[in-house]
Amino acid sequence: MSAQRVDSPLRTRFVVVALAGALSFPALPVLAHHSASQFDNSKVVTIKGVVKEFQDSNPHSWLIVEAVDAHGAVTTWSFEAEGPEVLLRAGIRRSDLPPGTSLTITGHPMRDGRTAATWLKATRADGKVFDPEQRGD
């Protein structure tokens, strides 16, 4: 596993981790409603930012996060997950991530460079983890 730092056009710094192949991930029903081919499963992006909006909806939900760099430049990232039933089964509620919540979130980024990714894990400032694929009650 190797890591490199990448500068975005808006100078926001984030970490892209190139994994040793997609086999590092278990077979999960990620984005079962549409193809996930726009996302690069061999990479993981990590964003530290603040929740702007949580669009909790079928067939897919979007968690929109704003990342601010040291110079005050803002980049908006959109993280896609399955719909509310899957998120609720994973114990994720809208009230867990209201606008203004600080978090660190990981995801497989888009291949075309747009600032969006699949939502893998979001870790709130208090350490609580929100994993959409976790099958807890």
């Binding site: 079928n58 897919h60 039933e85 609720l88 009650d137």
Partner: peptide, 16 residues
């Protein structure tokens, strides 16, 4: 057997 298994309509996605 988990909670939140209600059969809600699963629409297509107008943004696709």
């Amino acid at each position: 057997t988990q909670r939140h298994n209600a059969m809600n309509a699963f629409s297509c996605d107008v943004n696709i």
